[in-house]
Computed example of a mutant assay.
Amino acid sequence: MTLDFWFFCIAGPAVLFAGISKGGFGSGAAFASASILALVIEPGMALGIMLPLLMLIDVSTLRPYWGKWGASEVKLLVAGGVPGVILGALLYKIASPDFFRLLIGGISVGFVIWQLGRSTGWIAAGKRSLPSSAGLFWGAVAGFTSFVSHAGGPPAAVYLLSRNLSKTQYQATTVLLFWTLNAVKFVPYAFLGIFTMETMTADLLLAPFAIAGAWIGVKAHRLISQKVFFGITYLLLMVTGTKLIWDGLT
Rank of each mutant, 00 (worst) to 15 (best):
T120P: 06
V112A: 02
V15Q: 07
I36L: 15
S225Y: 04
G135F: 02
F186E: 01
S72W: 12
S60H: 07
A29R: 02
L136R: 03
L47T: 00
A34P: 04
L136P: 01
C9H: 11
G48A: 02
D58I: 10
L130N: 05
R63Q: 14
K22M: 09
H150S: 04
F7T: 08
V141F: 02
L161S: 06
L56F: 10
K22A: 05
N182W: 05
I123N: 09
A32N: 12
A140V: 00
R128L: 11
D58C: 05
G105N: 05
A212F: 11
K127D: 06
T250A: 13
A46Y: 04
W6T: 15
A183P: 03
T233Q: 10
A46C: 08
K219N: 08
S132Q: 14
T201W: 03
Y159I: 04
P43W: 07
S33N: 06
Y159S: 00
L53H: 10
I86M: 06
G19A: 09
I216N: 05
Y65R: 01
L76Q: 03
A71C: 13
A124W: 08
A46T: 01
L87I: 14
L56T: 14
A210Q: 02
L237T: 08
R128G: 08
S132R: 13
R163I: 09
K243S: 15
I94V: 15
A79L: 10
A71P: 11
G248A: 13
I49H: 01
G81W: 01
I49V: 13
G28K: 01
K93R: 14
L62S: 05
F178W: 09
V15Y: 03
V112E: 03
K227H: 15
L102Y: 10
Y92R: 13
L235T: 12
A18N: 09
D4H: 13
A212I: 13
L3C: 08
T233A: 15
L237M: 15
G105V: 11
K68A: 03
S162R: 06
R63M: 14
Y189K: 01
Y92K: 10
F195R: 02
A140W: 00
G105P: 07
K127M: 06
W66I: 09
S35A: 15
A71R: 15
C9N: 14
L204Q: 11
G110M: 08
L47Y: 00
F209G: 00
I216D: 02
G84V: 10
A89M: 07
L47V: 01
L165P: 07
L192W: 00
